[in-house]
């Protein structure tokens, strides 16, 4: 790890100012940043520790929605009674992420800034080409080991998969990120790689994530997060789905549906085509399975990750049908 100086922020404003300095990075839970610093990927000159700031870890849940402070720990949010009851998909996405220890460290704000697990991105000593690390250097993953790489939202410059679970659930329920006074949809906060995979988030130097806000809805209340992986736990998703559903009074006709995919795309992936195809339809397995295939419209594989194109619609369908069963 390259040496750096350490600064403990005493207020959000101070953090904002310090973060704007060249070479400065905000340090929250550290579960991504310290890891990547050890990999030689992150090379900060200054770490601005914001974990001691007061008041940024509040979790407020009401009928209207939830506002979660950026420094709330993933584990605390997962276990929060009102989050569990009003936003089950959020809680489930959180407790199925990483490990209990990491969830006690990682913050909600920091989790949005989680980087890809692409092995080429993570190993600069062996793989110098990575457009995400060094713009214009090329992509080592294309033509390499791609089993964990994205099939949606890729570009010629980058096929790195976005590995997070929480943000997948957030985009399903139209959550927004608070950057101080600025508000932005989580869906817009994450950027497609395009020709600039080094730029992953719509955040400017000096901006600090202060909270996320999730609007309350019937679909959020009846929601789930289904995560499929090789290992039963402590692993990133092979494919996952955050799904919320609201039925008409008949209990069978879909009034509102939210679907987002994880583990298969370069960013948290809202599957609006699936939603549109099923809204107004009566829930039945065949209809759901057929519509779920729309989740991977436009998917492109790179060999070993082809299975994700098969898998993702099945995960979506299972999640929707599971919610139907609990009607």
């Amino acid at each position: 790890m390259r040496d750096f100086s350490y600064l403990r922020a005493t207020s959000t404003d101070a953090a904002r100012q310090a973060a704007a300095l060249p070479g400065a990075m905000l340090l929250a839970g550290g579960t991504t940043l310290i890891d990547l610093a050890k990999c030689g990927v992150a090379e900060p000159d200054t770490l601005v520790d914001i974990t001691h700031l007061k008041g940024l870890d509040r979790i407020d849940v009401s009928e209207r929605g939830a506002t979660i402070g950026a420094l709330a720990k993933m584990g605390h949010v997962a276990d929060h009674a009102d989050i569990k009851s009003r936003f089950p998909a959020i809680s489930e996405a959180l407790w199925q992420a990483a490990s209990a220890q990491i969830r006690n460290m990682a913050t909600i704000g920091g989790n949005l800034m989680q980087r890809t697990r692409c092995p080429y991105f993570r190993d600069p000593a062996n793989f110098s080409a990575c457009n995400k690390r060094v713009p214009g250097s090329g992509c080592s993953a294309i033509g390499g080991v791609t089993r964990g790489h994205a099939v949606l939202g890729t570009s010629d410059a980058c096929i790195a998969m976005y590995p997070g679970d929480l943000a997948t659930a957030l985009v399903a329920f139209d959550a927004t990120v608070h950057l101080g006074d600025r508000r932005i949809l989580v869906d817009d906060f994450f950027l497609l790689p395009g020709t600039t995979p080094d730029r992953e988030h719509a955040i400017e130097p000096g901006e600090v994530i202060t909270a996320i806000e999730i609007p309350g809805s019937a679909a959020a209340r009846r929601s789930t997060y289904l995560k499929i992986r090789d290992r039963q736990s402590y692993e990133f998703a092979a494919a996952s789905a955050a799904v919320g559903i609201e039925f008409e009074a008949d209990g069978r006709t879909i009034r509102d549906l939210r679907v987002a995919l994880g583990g298969v795309a370069t960013k948290p992936w809202r599957a609006r085509a699936v939603e549109a195809a099923l809204k107004g339809k009566v829930l039945d397995p065949e209809t759901v399975r057929a519509a779920s295939l729309l989740a991977v419209e436009g998917a492109v594989d790179h060999g070993a990750n082809h299975y994700k194109i098969e898998l993702a619609p099945r995960v979506v369908a299972r999640a929707i049908l599971k919610l139907g069963e609990t009607a």
């Binding site: 092995p119 190993d123 062996n126 080991v145 290992r231 039963q232 736990s233 402590y234 692993e235």
Partner: peptide, 20 residues
């Protein structure tokens, strides 16, 4: 292409967890 094992860590070389 590189003749190199790329999952050379305990997040990518998967060994069973308690949950398995």
């Amino acid at each position: 292409r590189h003749g190199r094992i790329v999952n050379n860590n305990l997040a990518d070389y998967l060994v069973p967890t308690n949950a398995d």
